[in-house]
Design a protein around this nucleic acid. Sequence first.
DNA 1: TAAGATGATTGATTTGAATCAATAATATGT
DNA 2: ACATATTATTGATTCAAATCAATCATCTTA
Lengths: 203, 203
Amino acid sequence: MNNPIQKVTTRSLEFITEYLQRYMQMTKDEVELLLQYCELRYFDKKEIILKEGETDNYFSMVVSGLVRKYIRVKKNEVILQLATEGHMVHSETSFLTRTPSLVELETLEPTTILSIRYDLMQEALAKYPNGERLGRLILTRMYIKKDERKHDRAAKTMKERFLEYVTNHPHMLQRVPQKYLASYLNIKPETFSRLKHLVKEKK
Amino acid sequence: MNNPIQKVTTRSLEFITEYLQRYMQMTKDEVELLLQYCELRYFDKKEIILKEGETDNYFSMVVSGLVRKYIRVKKNEVILQLATEGHMVHSETSFLTRTPSLVELETLEPTTILSIRYDLMQEALAKYPNGERLGRLILTRMYIKKDERKHDRAAKTMKERFLEYVTNHPHMLQRVPQKYLASYLNIKPETFSRLKHLVKEKK
DNA sequence: TAAGATGATTGATTTGAATCAATAATATGT
DNA sequence: ACATATTATTGATTCAAATCAATCATCTTA
């Protein structure tokens, strides 16, 4: 357990167990069996995990580190996700449809990712009795999350989303250059900076 | 076939066949078997299909007519979807999680809807050999669509989305009060009105 | 079909965030 | 640890869309 490889493997097992248990009662052996299908991938800071135009062959979870997902649009970038430990991060549409990705993935820290390849996932879906069901339940939850985010966007003002974000994710302000947080919230860095005064005044 | 009930049934069969065939090769008999699980629901113009706070018990498709999906937010409404023939319309999250809906559904025209109840869907998922797989594939496509819409929102300016919408859905300007279209595009009716000049100038 | 209600258009004004710009703070690499 | 590059802050200005307001068009229904 002092071996760093062993440590990351243990952590992976914890994460994937927690992830799968959300959807289905599974024994430790079953989880470990599925883990056999997975691989760990290691990235440096500021490394590109997936380039725009590449097909994402992996369905992935961050085990440690931090990944940003973004699109390029007219010389600019728009951050779509900031994924930390335990979060899934991939180009879902590219992975699911086997088409070139519109998004890019880049690490903001040295990062370890636990991934399952597309072909192995298909194999597992078909091979295990509850595979399809598990797949359906995972997709269902993914869908619900996206729906909730959309609702959130529609219902809240920019200021509300800002306040909610900084109060719910205070650690992220330490970890992530705030221009990325600004982009994620769909505002300019200058505006983000100015909005911080709102928070301070509340204290 | 001159019988109006027969007509709507035929149309339902066409729609559901097309819908299911997107995901899985199915015989006419198999589709008709699934249709047994469904029911047709009829609504007048301006009738509420689903109220905020109610749990949506149906997974539904518009056979004829038009339905708007919206949330109430601070005395206002935000339109999330305008569903016409062949479109799915329900409170997905309410249906999938069995919790009170945040959205409301209201018809803008006399409308016929083809629906399957939650419990019957569960039964069908379990009963038929490819049920879970079909369910997974449908959810997958739903997810992809939502993802694409999100990407669209992130990548395009308000003006671009406006122009794209009015050129791709010219009939909707006839069918729907434009304050709803404006809300759907996240702009004020006055702004929508003014943007129409852009289109005319192009001609 | 006429009256009232609802929706659309157009103009004038306000407002909030983007942009532009300059400086300060922080991070990065050698 | 230093020099350079990147990021954050703050102020001044611009700009686009919201708001306010009045009129016109259209739908509804009695």
